[in-house]
Each structure stands twice: as C-alpha cells, then as structure tokens.
C-alpha cells in the first residue's frame, strides 16, 4: 500500500467528513491528523479482501470523531446561534466572504441534524461510498440509509432556504 497515494486521494474526503461532524477547524485538523496517523500505523493490517480502502479509512475516521466527542464529554457538534442570519454591512466584504459563509451555512445546517443523520450525510457527501457500503460500515440496512439521507437533505433544504444556490 502506497501511503502517500492514499493520503493524496483521501485527505480532502476525510477532512470534509470530519468537518461535517465537528465543524471546528482546529478540531477537524487534529482529528484528521489522528486518522492518517492511525491509518499509517495500521496500513500493514489492511486487507483489501475485507472491504474497499475508503470503508477502512472512514471506519478509522468515525472512531476518531467518536473519541473526540467522548474526550470532550459532549456530542460532536456546535451551537447554531446566529448562523442563519446573513450579516449586513459592506457588500464587497460580503462578496469576499460569500464562499466561506456558504460553507459555514452548510456546516451549520448539518449541525442541526441528529448525530446519526449527520454521520450518514457526512459519509454520503464526503466519502464517495454507496448506500450499500455506508450500510455495511454503520451496521444499518441499506434502505434505512436511503431514508435517512432523504430526510436529512430535506431538513437541510429547509435550513438552507436563504442560500443563493438554492
């Protein structure tokens, strides 16, 4: 296994998954680093016959997020206060911040979901895994995964109603 290749192919996906789960940049950096350190340490034990490498990697990522939540003694989420209010003021500054603001609104909308839905959504939109693979990783039924995604996207559609892209 070429670890550098794994890193280059999956860093963005793992980081996005972790950001969906914890939202905070510093925490996401710490957790992502732990994921890849653990992956490097266990790379020799990875058996392709047991499943695709993204399932193996995102299994490590899920555990790392769970550990982080346990260590902090809280759910892996952040409050939503003020997130859905668009700031007023200088329109140029607003334009500059638009991309970041849009991403923050997505994260805030994800944070409004329950823990399990957020996990499934993060896997679906970050990992590139199919519903079947997500079901195998999470222990849920494939149909149940589809329902959770459907409901979660509907909920986020409501929350993101003010988004320019929707």
């Amino acid at each position: 296994m070429d670890f550098a290749d794994i890193y280059d192919r999956y860093f963005d996906k793992v980081y996005n998954y972790v950001r969906y789960r914890v939202r905070l940049i510093d925490a996401a950096d710490d957790i992502t680093a732990k994921v890849f350190e653990a992956a490097l340490g266990r790379s020799a034990a990875y058996d392709p016959a047991k499943g695709p490498e993204q399932a193996w990697l995102f299994g490590i990522a899920r555990n790392a997020v769970a550990d982080w939540g346990r260590d902090r003694g809280r759910r892996a989420e952040v409050p939503l206060d003020g997130v859905f209010e668009r700031p007023g003021g200088d329109p140029r500054a607003e334009d500059i911040l638009e991309g970041r603001e849009e991403r923050e609104r997505v994260l805030a909308a994800a944070a409004a979901l329950d823990e399990r839905s957020r996990d499934i959504m993060a896997l679906k939109f970050s990992s590139g895994m199919t519903n079947r693979e997500i079901a195998a990783l999470t222990g849920l039924a494939e149909g149940n995964v589809g329902i959770i995604i459907y409901r979660a996207v509907k909920r986020m559609q409501e929350l993101l109603g003010g988004s320019k892209a929707i």
Binding site: N16, R19, A28, D29, E102, F125, L160
Partner: peptide
C-alpha cells in the same frame, strides 16, 4: 449545494 461544499481548503 451539499455535494459542492469543500472545506478542505481550511485545513492548516
């Protein structure tokens, strides 16, 4: 919108 959201540029 969700699929297009990429936060990885924030990583330090």
């Amino acid at each position: 919108v969700l699929a297009a959201a990429d936060f990885s540029a924030d990583s330090r």
